[in-house]
Design a protein around this nucleic acid. Structure first.
Lengths: 340, 340
DNA sequence: CTGAAAGCGCTTACAG
DNA sequence: CTGAAAGCGCTTACAG
């Protein structure tokens, strides 16, 4: 079943391709009678113009590229949905590619976006490029992309539009809140600061919090491995086994939060520690398990990022925008304590 | 920053576009010296051929369309990731569009895929088209798509390649397992059978299970509303309030399972009922809350679906394939009982 | 091994 | 209000 083309329609209507093209792009310029006739023929033939041909001819595109690490983390899932909502509203198609936190896949994804000649890309960098000494290579790639890009969530200091959360401040606030509640020995289970810029920022926040509270850092309470459930699970098990002193734990993202929970529930020590996690875990609320967390509204961030891109496409010369969102600290367990 | 074209490369290399095109498509046909020279010039210029132009010229495409209801349901999130993995391996780009279980969005999504001239589409139908009397319209749309499609997860009896789970059998098994454990009054919280074919099948399975067990259906224990957390929450609250007799509950998908949990935890009746949910809820296992569920491996289904599409593209004339996957019943809570 | 030319399905400046 | 023609960036049969 070959697709119907503009020539087929023109022929059936007894007009030129130009006229058919006009009813597609500027119908007001076509005499009503012929327009209606052409429209009807199009409909009867199930004609849909080819975006491929149009894009080539117009030297433009109607699709936007989205590069994120993964989708099975609710944080990125929500981000993605926010992006999709805005793109949809603006009649833009969405070309998706994950980078799995890997440089290789990241570069492949960017190459793919270039090959596809997308209108713009929404981009969560795969890793801590500055720390890896790969900043130059990345910048070259981004420049040769041929379209604008927005850097999301991970602030690796690219000279372009960016939007991300103030993660450092958030963790600092978490530390101070725990200190205020009387905790002195606060463990920290985090991602790898070398690999992930967010891990680095969160670690800085952790240290800054301790500093402000006048507490020393105990490196035996700091675990920086992977942003994975399994890592936090093992880290927490080790902590419970080897360390006696600590009374509170901060986990660096929702996967780590899940691993922490798995470990303490398994050991039947769910109430033994105060815990603040980065990102909300929905199930806990449903199960009425009070939990403290740093709330980052990634759905909203996705919407804003998509809007930034659309605005950038419309005004290529406008000033670079760097948006810093402030996460909030949600304390449910102390709420519970107060109610007791 | 305009993109470099094949003509630019040809000019710089002092050869024809044909030759440049050859080093892209059949390098073995180009004399080694010129090939190397051209390759080097391409690299220096950061040249990437335009998929748009290539697709138009080749009358082919390198992207596959994916239409699913939503991504914030883990079931579809996993499905999506399975799909992505296979597409990636086959160097296919992924054009995404959600349909949000709505006919209007579904048709728009299909139109978009046609406009984009994708190579094929992986498709989860938005709703119960046969029951809505819209089967004819949908079939027309699918036919005029101009590319093969695979129907996933919701078996609305389209005459094309399909893959889905045996949901009816699964729920039937769940009922029989509860009956065997001594339950007689089994409530059922489900989606709308008119709107969603899966709801219809699961309801059939529920009734079939009761029939086989020789039990009458008590319609006061059957709630068929929306596949949403909030619906199950309200339904379960009402059940607990109005009905005394029931001792077990089956929920029709993971969202409903969450709503059920929310209601029973809020009422502090988590242990009051036996519960089997369709689809696993990961957090429960992490929190060591024993739970029974029907396991449907949607990641695997996504992979298989993508493979089916690729195979269909390669062999357009091969026989239509309809795959029925058998879900398994996972009983953790009785496991626990036995251990007691 | 290489190139000129036609074609993919559109759009658009130009002429009428 | 309408159409012929050139062009977007590639590919490919054909000729050499």
């Amino acid at each position: 079943m070959k697709n119907v083309t503009i020539s087929d329609i023109a022929q059936r209507a007894g007009v030129s391709k130009t006229t058919v093209s006009r009813v597609l792009n500027s119908p007001e310029k076509v005499e009503e009678g012929t327009r209606k006739k052409i429209e009807q023929i199009m409909k009867a033939a199930h004609y849909t113009p080819s975006a491929t041909a149009r894009n080539l001819s117009k030297q433009a595109s109607s699709t936007v590229g989205v590069i994120v690490p993964e989708l099975n983390n609710a944080f990125y899932g929500d981000l993605f949905m926010g992006i999709e909502e805005i793109l949809n509203k603006n009649n833009l198609s969405l070309l998706y590619c994950s980078n799995e936190d890997k440089v290789k896949k990241d570069f492949e994804a960017l190459d793919m976006m270039k090959t596809q000649r997308v209108k713009g890309v929404l981009y969560v960098p795969a890793m801590n490029y500055p720390a890896a000494g790969l900043m130059g290579k990345l910048q070259k790639k981004l420049e040769s992309l041929g379209c604008p890009a927005i850097c999301i969530d991970r602030d690796i200091r690219l000279h372009m539009d960016t939007i991300h959360f103030n993660d450092k401040k958030a963790v600092e606030t978490a530390v101070l809140s725990l200190v205020e509640a009387g905790h002195r020995d606060i463990a920290f289970i985090n991602g790898n600061e070398k690999k992930n810029i967010l891990a680095a920022e969160r670690y800085e926040g952790y240290r800054e919090g301790l500093r402000k509270a006048g507490l020393p850092e105990n490196e035996r309470l700091v675990y920086q491995g992977e942003f994975q459930k399994s890592y936090a699970y093992l880290a927490m098990k080790e902590l419970m086994e080897k360390e006696r002193s600590f009374t509170a734990v901060i986990t660096g993202n929702n996967s780590l939060g899940k691993g922490y929970l798995q470990a303490v529930y398994e050991a039947e020590k769910a109430d033994a520690y105060a815990h603040i996690g980065v990102d909300r875990i929905e199930m806990l609320d449903l199960l009425r398990i009070p939990n403290d967390y740093i709330l980052r509204d990634s759905y909203e961030m996705g919407k804003q990022a998509a809007e930034m891109l659309i605005s950038r496409i419309a005004f290529p010369e406008k000033k670079i925008q760097n948006i810093l969102l402030e996460p909030s600290l949600v304390l449910e367990s102390s709420e519970r304590d107060r109610k007791r």
